[in-house]
Amino acid sequence: MIRRPVAGVIRRGAVVGAATGLLVGAGASADAASDSALSDPVVSGVTVNSGHDVIVGITHNVSFPVTVTGSDDSGLLAADVDLKGPHGGFYTTDAMCESGTACTMVFTVNAHPAPGSDDPVDLANANAGTWSVDTLVDANDGDSVYAPNVGTFALKRAAQLTVNAAPEPVAKGAWITVTGKLVRANWDTYRYAGYAGRAVKLQFRPKDSSTYTTVATVTTSNTGTLSTKVNAVRDGYWRWNFAGSATTGPAKAAGDYVDVRP
């Protein structure tokens, strides 16, 4: 079941971090008041996508888990979770807790058209970046607690890289030209487009090694293209490696093998 909680509404419980007052009536003890306050459920944290960025392309739905952890003397029952991103990005869902201390739900996002859907979910480029997590947790005894901004995560546009090293084969000591292109998902047009002005590492792995070493760093052109010349010393693989940005995921090209002849 999907619900959309009204902002600011708190059900039967406390707001995490809010100052609270307790009126003790005639005959009530301070100890009893303290015990009552301790009975409110507590939200201790949230984990999104097992701690990894959520990276979305232009053709497939991406599903990821969100786990809220906490405690209550009666055990946790259920949780509502809202994900809020830049420029009005918003997802919400709820789930019953799988234990008295953890509640896991799965979100599905996409950046491609969903014609015919009753509730299409469609990301825009402006939604990429840091998202925050709000949660409302219910305990088995009827108490609830609202925890705003209990965590953050990154929702990013997918990136892709190509590479070509030429000529091949090549004589030892000669120059080769390594080209490529960095593109990223455009969630507004449902296509991949060149990513301009990005620093990308050129890396080399000798034929008899499993380790790549950075040889140079090149900035992409205004269309995302890359090009540089390197000296051919020995047989091996050349690739481009992009570390990612605040809005875009990382990408590595598959190594292009160059045969260097004496």
Rank of each mutant, 00 (worst) to 15 (best):
D53M: 01
A232T: 08
V106D: 13
N149D: 15
W187P: 08
T20H: 14
T179S: 14
N110K: 11
M1F: 08
D256M: 05
N231T: 14
V200G: 04
S34W: 07
A165Q: 07
N149E: 11
G51L: 08
D134Q: 05
A19W: 11
D80G: 04
L83Q: 10
K207I: 03
R157A: 14
V133E: 08
H112Y: 13
R4S: 11
V46T: 12
N222M: 07
W175A: 07
D256L: 05
G89F: 05
D259H: 13
L77G: 00
D122W: 02
A126F: 01
D208F: 09
P5L: 09
A79V: 15
S44R: 10
T247S: 13
V109D: 07
N140S: 06
L76M: 08
S144D: 08
G116P: 05
N110D: 10
T104H: 12
S34R: 13
L161I: 04
T93W: 11
L136M: 10
S74R: 10
A95R: 10
R198K: 13
V9K: 13
V81Y: 10
D73L: 01
T189P: 00
A32C: 01
K229V: 09
V145I: 15
G57S: 04
F153Q: 05
D31H: 09
Y190L: 01
T214Y: 12
A166M: 06
V218A: 01
D119P: 00
A147C: 08
L76I: 04
A30E: 10
H112E: 04
N164C: 00
V56Y: 12
L202N: 03
D35R: 15
T59Y: 12
V133Y: 05
T162W: 01
G27C: 06
A159L: 00
A166F: 08
S144N: 12
V6Y: 09
D256K: 09
G88P: 06
S34M: 06
